[in-house]
Design a protein around this nucleic acid. Structure first.
Length: 547
RNA sequence: GCCCCCAUCGUCUAGAGGCCUAGGACACCGGCUUUUCAUGCCGGCGACAGGGGUUCGACUCCCCUUGGGGGCGCCA
């Protein structure tokens, strides 16, 4: 009988799904679909200190948003559940018991500080990395209790076989791991919870996982896992270690990139420390100093506050970031698929179902892939252009739903559709917002971009202001406020004064939107309506002349 | 420091010894379209890291060097 292919994605609930995780999830999903198997989702929440409330739900939402629905896992169930490791503790305990009874695991009582000291010493003196010194004889159960009573930690370590391992990797080929590189690693923590290495082996077996696709940073871990599988008599799944995703600068793409961007912005802005701290809403000068020296990361909210205070945009890292920026999920899926994989020809644009047909581990490369935001943007632009109105409308609504309420939030479908038409060529939904938000904001809140005002209204002899005044008068007499008529009117006006259209449109645009960016001017005015257009021009005339 | 992985245009990649004068996409540069922004269209620039082998022949195979990256947790 041919074994059913079963893959899994096993994130830990520490935040939103990020690009690297999404790629891993996607490849596992594709492999399962390609081979007619099942894709499972498992939550690895064995680190109680790192678990973040609500993160699991976010993870699931992001996965679903991408269209990567799991066949078994949280919220859908399945025969191998529960699918949260925190709900499978008895199983790990049984397995630990088994190893302990067979003399394949033993208690260890070092504190973290002691271990740190041992590691430092090992790294300084020896050429080898640190290996935990296995005791001649293993402590008894009673010793563990004694240690705990004395306030010492008690963990369980696995007795690593003294031999080399060969990882048969479907992407990298055979990778040798020397015995000297392996050590008696911890399988049960002091709090009684399993470590990742331990839980993953137990669960992958009981969930009948046949293929494990994960990031290359896990490569050497596989030896640990194989040793454990051997100890339990469990088969080793097929391994495939995916190339790491880099930032354009090189180096693993991680949330840290956000810190880097803001840190650099703080430095170039020359902002004083106390001002920066106030912006970020921080009170602890020491932790701020540590952050500034790249030693720590700021928590998301402070980072966001600091970034917007400095007027810099945080780079998108999490899938949710891209969603908020107005990317299409199908584009993200398409683009992420190309990070380390290619169909083998010049084809680049593919839907999820096409990917399901085409995907294969054989075509996954070994080289790490840089995440090229420009190319993603281009993909999004093209896809948006090609998408049906219904699709775009739904996506636009989704975009608005994940962004804080703005001027466009309450608009009806007809209006949103109209905006998309007027903004043809937009690259993300955010483009539409930047282009149209001013039109739906209250007149009083209008901000004038000083540069735009200077260039189009105040420069030289102020021809712009003069034109605007004349325009105001002429517009006053115009009753048919349709875009067509406005267009005719503006063209005629320009022709009459022998002015280029820009000389007419730009002063109008600045006066009515405060910026040089908006839909075509006739549409801009039509959208605004007669009264508001005139009111805005009056307001501009008054404010700018006064300045 | 030690171990492991990787190496084709700036970036993602095609290339499985002769198909390569190395193809595509993004970026970039130039031009066109244009009332702003953004699209769109046309054209251009642009790579086999270096050195040794193997072979009639190497981008493709082997070795070394160099460069890049990852791992070395009671994180996953």
């Amino acid at each position: 009988m041919i074994e059913t292919v079963r893959t899994r994605f096993a994130p830990s609930p520490t935040g939103y799904l990020h690009i690297g995780g999404a790629r891993t999830a996607l490849f596992n999903y594709l492999l399962a679909k390609r081979l007619g198997g099942k894709f499972l989702l498992r939550i690895e929440d064995t680190d109680r200190t790192r678990n973040i409330a609500g993160a699991e739900q976010k993870l699931l939402d992001d996965l679903r948003w991408l269209g990567l629905q799991w066949d078994e896992g949280p919220q859908v169930g399945g025969p191998a559940g529960p699918y949260c490791q925190s709900q499978r503790l008895e199983r790990y305990a049984e397995h630990a018991r088994r190893l302990l009874d067979e003399g394949l695991a033993y208690y260890a009582f070092e504190t973290r500080a002691e271990l740190d000291a041992m590691r430092t010493a090992a790294r300084q003196s020896g050429e080898r990395g640190f290996r935990y010194p296995r005791p001649k004889s293993f402590p008894a159960e009673a010793d563990a209790q004694k240690a705990r009573d004395a306030g010492r930690p008690a963990v369980l370590r696995f007795k690593m076989p003294e031999r080399d391992f060969v990882i048969h990797d479907q992407i990298l080929g055979d990778v040798d791991v020397a015995a000297s590189e392996l050590s008696d690693f911890v399988i049960v923590k002091n709090d009684g919870w399993p470590t990742y290495h331990f839980a993953v082996v137990v669960d992958d077996f009981h969930m009948k996982i046949t293929h494990v696709l994960r990031g290359q940073e896990h490569l050497l871990n596989s030896a640990n896992h194989m040793a454990l599988q051997e100890a339990f008599g469990y088969p080793t799944p097929a391994y495939a270690h995916l190339p790491i995703i880099f930032t354009m600068k090189g180096g693993k793409m991680s949330k840290r990139e956000k810190d880097t961007v803001v840190r650099d912005a703080v430095k170039t802005s020359g902002l004083a420390d106390d001002q920066a701290m106030e912006l970020a809403g921080l009170i602890d000068a020491d932790s701020y100093a540590a952050w500034k020296k790249s030693k720590t990361q700021l928590e998301a909210e402070s980072l966001q506050r600091l970034a917007s205070g400095l007027g810099v945009a945080l780079p998108e890292i999490d899938i949710h970031d891209f969603r908020k920026s107005g990317y299409l999920p199908e584009v993200l899926v398409n683009f992420i698929a190309l990070l380390g994989w290619s169909p083998g020809d010049d084809r680049e644009k593919m839907t999820l179902s096409e990917l399901c047909e085409l995907f294969g581990v054989e075509r996954v490369g070994k080289k790490s892939a840089r995440f090229d935001r420009d190319k993603l943007l281009s993909f999004n632009t093209t896809a948006l252009e090609a998408a049906s109105t219904e699709r775009k409308l739904a996506a636009f609504r989704d975009y608005l739903s994940v962004n804080e309420a703005g001027p466009l939030t309450g608009l009806d479908d007809a209006l949103l559709e109209r905006l998309m038409k007027l903004c043809a060529g937009f690259r993300t939904f955010s483009d539409i917002v930047t282009k149209c938000a001013a039109l739906f904001a209250p007149d009083e809140s209008l901000q004038y971009d000083p540069k735009a005002v200077k260039k189009w209204l105040l420069k030289g002899e102020r021809p712009g202001l003069k034109v605007l005044g004349e325009l105001r008068q002429a517009l006053q007499g115009l009753d048919d406020w349709s875009p067509q008529n406005l267009d005719t009117f503006i063209r005629a006006f320009a022709e009459q004064r022998e002015l280029g259209l820009g000389k007419v449109a730009q002063p109008l645009r600045v006066a009515t939107t405060g910026t040089t960016i908006s839909p075509q001017i006739s549409d801009t005015l039509a959208l605004l309506g007669r009264e508001r257009t005139l009111a805005r021009i009056d307001r501009a005339l008054k404010q700018i002349v006064a300045s």
